[in-house]
């Protein structure tokens, strides 16, 4: 049994909160820069240039890339041979508290969805735990802005709707979202599972590098098909027209019930932040 202290977890989360919000990951930079090269519409080219200028300024000055520094979505894979001294969830929330305070990040969480009073420290984090083999803890931190989160949808399709039903729902969701989620966007798609698991898959799809492909060739191909269809919509960066509506489509799947074909679409913006660290 390996011992890991809660202090170490708090310190790691704090550092990751600041890093994720100020430094765009390399996969996103690659996708944005490639899209800039491929973009033909002048307005769209100009916006992509500004987006690149913005993340360079943010990184240089350790300033948040976007003022919506998000809900702190944290995915923790805990090795079953790890023992944690103390309260893990509290240690994570303390890391978020310190990171959002010391990193001058915006506190965007309200304590009750209807009463709407700000907790003023961006806690609680949105945490998922998974038990895995080994004696390590893997933490993925993905601050999630809500301009794009609000454009996300889920639908319980019929098995007979098949892949066409999936494609139609994803493309329709992006078209309805239009200019609202700050295109160019990253589209996380969950297919299968139950209602709740499907939404989780869509969120998890956004953690995968934007320039990666689903390991199953059929789904890698479906990712390409969806990206092509989405970029034929013409919405473009910021909705002002252009080729670059989406930078990437990531699909995650799991088994489902004989009666169902759940599909969830979690939309993220061009500031798709995700950092991973193994303790």
């Amino acid at each position: 049994m390996r011992e890991i202290s809660t202090n170490r977890i708090t310190e790691t989360i704090k550092r990751l909160c600041i890093e994720a919000n100020c430094k765009l990951p390399i996969d996103m930079k690659t996708c944005i820069e490639k899209s800039r090269e491929a973009e033909t519409f002048p307005t769209a080219q100009g916006i992509l240039d500004k987006i690149i200028e913005n993340y360079n300024i943010a990184e240089k000055e350790t300033k948040p890339i976007c003022q919506d520094t998000g809900a702190a979505c944290i995915f923790v894979n805990i090795g079953q041979d790890v023992h944690i001294n103390g309260n893990l969830t509290e240690a994570i929330n303390e890391g978020v508290r310190q990171g959002y305070r010391d990193g001058f990040l915006r506190k965007s969480i309200v304590s009750d969805p209807l009463e709407r009073v700000n907790t003023n420290d961006n806690t609680p984090a949105m945490i998922y735990y998974d038990i895995v083999e080994g004696d390590k803890i893997e933490i993925t931190l993905a601050p999630k802005g809500f301009g794009s989160e609000n454009m996300s949808r889920i639908k319980m399709l019929k098995p007979s709707d098949g892949v066409k039903g999936v494609i139609d729902f994803v493309v329709e969701t992006v078209e309805k979202a239009g200019s609202n989620p700050c295109p160019p966007i990253v589209v996380g798609v969950g297919i299968g599972g139950t209602f709740d698991k499907c939404a989780y898959l869509a969120k998890k799809a956004l953690l995968r590098d934007a320039d990666s492909a689903n390991p199953i060739p059929y789904y890698a191909e479906l990712e390409d098909t969806l990206l092509t269809k989405i970029n034929a919509l013409g919405i473009g960066p910021q909705g002002f027209g252009g080729k670059t509506t989406a930078l990437a489509v990531n699909i995650e799947t799991m088994p489902t019930h004989i009666a169902g074909l759940p599909v969830a679409v979690n939309i993220n913006c061009h500031v798709t932040r995700h950092v991973k660290e193994v303790i």
Binding site: I47, K50, I51, E53, N54, Y55, I57, A58, E61, K63, P64, I65, C66, Q67, D68, G147, S179, C182, Q238, G239, F240, C269, H270, V271
Partner: peptide, 13 residues
Amino acid sequence: FGAIGGCGALLSK
């Protein structure tokens, strides 16, 4: 008016 969403560092200048 529209300002560029997701460019908060740049716009703050």
